[in-house]
Design a protein around this nucleic acid. Structure first.
Length: 291
DNA sequence: AGGGGGACCTGTGCGC
DNA sequence: TGCGCACAGGTCCCCC
């Protein structure tokens, strides 16, 4: 999936098209994504004005002038594209060929919305690990999706001391701990690998031993890698693209992710990037300068 | 109680 | 060319 920087880029791309606009038409083309759409999904959204577009971790929150907030997650392969009225739904300028059904639709275009200004918003997700649900706005914090979620990494409240306190006593590798959304919300495989590299911390190190000085070193690196990635419009690997179809370019700045065998970029370090598997997911790191 | 492993999906790229 | 396998920005449930 898009991790925090990619989701943030999508959110920013949606603002000009959606903020203050009325959802004139909402169409779901199947019963579910990873989970079913909320009951009466289309009716509850149609005619509502979008009052705000927020992000929490990897979720986009679309507040309306009704009781509900539309909660969107892009899973691993979700994409949202905008197009002015009259154009085909998936504009076809992506790096993937666009599939078509006999009715002319991309079979992975699962949700199509249209605003009162005629902009079409298309949600495409070929793996369907994403979700779209309606949650009463005043119940968001207590909703199961959010109630146990850790701090936003880019907020000032996320400090070395805060991370340190959560890691203390955790008997799991730091790599797994950082992927745990209860520890810090919004990091995924790429930015965990990159942040650990920048902080020169081994992904295999026990989380409890990162508490203290290493946590103080790690937090600024988490923030800097996320900020730089947002600045670059996120990272485009297989599926991710901006709302206008353009690609992010932070993937060109990876120091370790998917760089198996490449020389470590740390000056004077002779290490070669290795790949290991932790909790079923690939981890890339430099065995020499990450300890 | 908390963490690891599989399940959920489809697509792509590789080796044989 | 084709087939099978491994792997992919995530999360959740089950089981130990």
């Amino acid at each position: 999936m898009p991790e925090l920087p990619e989701v943030e880029t999508v959110r920013r791309g949606l603002i000009p098209a959606l903020e203050g606009r009325v959802l004139a038409r909402v169409e779901t083309r199947r019963a579910d994504l990873r989970v079913p759409f909320s009951p009466r999904f289309e009716q509850r959204l149609t005619g509502r004005r979008v009052t705000d577009l927020r992000r929490r971790a990897k979720y986009i929150l679309l507040d309306t002038d009704g009781p509900d907030t539309l909660v969107i997650h892009l899973g691993m392969s979700g994409r949202i594209t905008l197009c002015a009225g009259g154009l085909s739904e998936s504009p076809g300028r992506f790096h993937h060929p666009v599939l078509r059904n006999s009715d002319g639709h991309d079979p992975h275009d699962h949700v199509v919305m249209e605003t009162d200004h005629g902009t079409r918003i298309v949600y495409n997700d070929h793996r369907r690990f994403g979700l779209m649900v309606l949650v009463p706005t005043n119940e968001l914090d207590s909703h199961p999706l959010f109630k146990n979620m850790g701090p936003e990494p880019l907020e000032d409240a996320f400090t070395g001391a805060v991370l340190s306190a959560v890691l203390k006593g955790k008997r799991t590798p730091i790599k797994s701990a950082l992927l745990d959304q209860r520890v810090v919300a919004g990091l995924g495989n790429i930015y965990v690998c990159e942040a650990l590299y920048r902080a020169r911390i081994s992904p295999q190190r026990l989380a409890s031993t990162v508490a203290g000085v290493r946590a103080e070193r790690l937090v600024p690196e988490i923030k800097s890698v996320l900020r730089e990635a947002i600045e670059a419009g996120g990272s485009s690997l297989r599926d991710y693209a901006h709302t206008d179809g353009e690609l992010g370019y932070f993937q060109h700045h990876f120091a370790v992710y998917d760089r198996l065998g490449a020389p470590c970029l740390t000056p004077k370090c002779r290490g070669k990037i290795r790949r290991l598997v932790q909790a079923g997911r690939s981890t890339w790191s430099c065995p020499v300068c990450q300890r």
